[in-house]
Design a protein around this nucleic acid. Structure first.
Lengths: 391, 391
DNA sequence: TCCCATTTGTCAAGGACATAGACAAATTGC
DNA sequence: GCAATTTGTCTATGTCCTTGACAAATGGGA
């Protein structure tokens, strides 16, 4: 009459976790090698691997050979055992992808954002997920998780998007809750620049360092901070909202309140205004302006140089506060090497310890990549994580 | 012939950790209540408590009574089972204290810093520890750990102090290593402002929040950042080195390189220079200046107001980058309510989401407190922490 | 005063998980 | 074909935790 429900699950969880991590780290590996690497006994490894294979997480893939001794069966992660969705919501485009447990992209798509916003976006997301699931050869109910990147400041606790000027109606609903209820799986909502930083940390320039910042420069400006290897959100989710940096204008000018002093000084609007101020006449978009620069136009060069100077000062300020090893730039302006080279020139002249500057490895897919990185990490945690009880 | 060495230590460690944490959280508690709070069985709790009592970590202190049923024996932490040292190295004074496992101060002292610096300081520390141990009724070899706070930038990996202008000869030796070898117990070296931040997090204004900054304003300036509940050090240990913030002067002025643009603008020297510039003649120290302010002198008021304005802009910049809930000020200037009130006035005029401002709860003991907080945490980790093997 | 409900803490039995060592099976090299 | 090597299972054993029974201790009410 002993019920024996989950008596000592923790030891087995730890062993399982060690096995999974070892297989992840080595790709394809035999049980004997897992035992050597983890320090656990062969018996335990056999037990754990049997359970994991029964549950579909591992699959046998081949045999060793060529070495003396009996051949070993090698196992690897069954990547398809966990699929998740990453969505990057932009003001004009929505990008979405499904990735597996190993972070491989198994389906990807891009559509125009429904301009009506609000609940229409929830419908659009749901339709996208069904399509992607079909393209990936599965169904939406097999997906484990959605990570949604959105512009704006969102509450770290509730996931509510408090400020999102470029997407109508999205701050009126609790997008995370509504969307999650609709599709029946957990949804994580995160600021898109924060996701871009996570993307670089996962598979981009940030892979080797645990202290860097992703600075997005475009119509708006923003920053995602990775410090001590984790994302900083701040008390209200507004960490990295460098639009409000008191640089490039008078901090006490009330006009800086609405748009933000720094954003007013370096956003695309400011850049074009500056170009016109220098006498430029041949650019109505940022792309035009860079074309004019490359054609040798001095007013374009002056506009770019002035912007670079302000960005360098901002990076100096960020460096003084955070001491990042690396600053990665992205966005329609921040991804331009012409600007970044100018920033690289200015930076050592305004700070004694300039961080390295790199352009984002992923261009406009950085946030999508970050969402996948979060999704993969979260799946690993949920599936194999060891959680100790909080007392 | 079964050797049976540490077969399944992890489960017992987890149980032990849960027991210890429960006793810490509740002060004095019976085994039955520990079982209820942890969810572990009475049997397990009895076993664990017996082991802990045998090893001296717990001690029985009394009995419950007044309730129906058999009385329970209550246990509490034997605070004296772990003693550690906190030292705050300043350019003129060294403060040191011994605290126990519960963070109670059992001995404290203060001496003048040996002006010869270098190895003489190591001698001074060693003597201090012997004295303190005697005062605490124990001997130096019973102490488990030393936490040493020092001005300067130190390497997060090695503990080497790279920059420490106010203490001679300290960057020439690996202070952590030399000192640790001398006294034979582990030494943790940390920047003094970072320790002050830890002190506020442990038992000061930062106790309720996990995102705040400690800003020290005095002869020099510095900042300690707690984000997501942990201290940020940055890639080179220079996070929070706000001396180099490009605020209060031209960031591209080469003069700002040596001292730092912001420090040159708000340090005590700058403040006194500003006072003289406004026509003040009655102050040669910062204390004089605040006295003149309180006597109604307009040039003192102007000097303070200008300093407050610059500090407000700096806090706005820090807020844009980090979004702290709270900024705690300290140091000989930062602890003055006259200045802080002026900062509080300026702040909402230069940032849309001003953080709360508080003056440090501990005055010049903040770093010492922080060292004790670190020491207590570290002792808990070492003694009761659960460490999973890294694969 | 005595009995009962209640609570504490130990004892005993049993299950899950881990280890070590023996051993069979499979493979290479001489 | 045989020795050496490696893999993976089997067996025996030990630790840790749980459950339920039970003795001991205590307060309150008849």
């Amino acid at each position: 009459m002993i019920s024996s429900v989950a008596q000592t699950p923790i030891a087995r969880k730890i062993s399982t976790n060690a096995v999974i991590r070892t297989v992840f780290a080595n790709g394809s590996i035999s049980r004997a090698d897992i035992a050597k690497l983890t320090g656990l006994s062969k018996q335990t490894i056999s037990d754990v691997v049997r359970d994991l294979e029964d549950d579909g997480w591992l699959k046998p893939v081949g045999q060793t050979d060529g070495r003396p001794g009996r051949n070993a069966i090698t196992y690897e992660i069954n990547a398809r055992a966990g699929l998740a969705v990453s969505i990057d919501l932009g003001s004009t485009k929505i990008a979405a992808a499904i990735c597996d447990l190993l972070g491989n992209v198994v389906a990807e798509t891009k559509v125009s954002t429904d301009p009506r916003g609000g609940m229409h976006l929830v419908n659009q997301f749901s339709d996208l997920i069904v399509e992607l699931a079909f393209a990936a050869g599965t169904t939406a109910d097999k997906l484990r998780l959605v990570v949604l990147g959105s512009p704006g400041v969102l509450d770290p606790a509730t996931g509510h998007i408090n400020v999102a000027p470029s997407i109508p109606g999205i701050d009126a609903i609790n997008l995370r809750q509504v969307f999650s209820d609709r599709i029946g799986i957990p949804v994580i909502v995160e600021n898109d620049v924060n996701l871009a930083a996570q993307g670089e940390r996962w598979r981009g320039h940030g892979i080797e360092t645990s202290n860097f910042a992703f600075v997005a420069l475009g119509t708006g400006v923003g920053m995602g901070i990775i410090a001590n290897g984790t994302l900083l959100r701040g008390a209200r989710g507004a960490a990295g909202e460098i639009a409000y940096l008191p640089i490039g204008g008078d901090a006490f000018d009330p006009g800086g309140f609405t748009l933000g002093t720094f954003e007013s000084a370096v956003g695309s609007v400011a850049m074009l205004r500056r170009y016109v101020g220098f006498g430029g006449r041949n650019a109505s978009t940022v792309a035009d302006l860079f074309a004019a620069f490359n054609a040798g136009e001095t007013s374009a060069a002056a506009a770019i140089e002035e912007t670079a100077r302000l960005v360098a000062v901002a990076i100096a300020a960020i460096g003084a506060a955070l001491d990042p090893e690396l600053v990665i730039t992205g966005g329609s302006i921040g991804a331009r090497p012409e600007l970044v080279n100018a920033i690289r020139d200015f930076l050592p002249r305004c700070t004694p310890y300039p961080p390295r500057i790199e352009i984002s490895r992923f261009g406009n897919r950085a946030a999508l990549m970050g969402g996948m990185g979060i999704a993969v990490e979260r799946m690993h945690d949920d599936l194999f994580g060891v959680k100790l009880r909080e007392v």
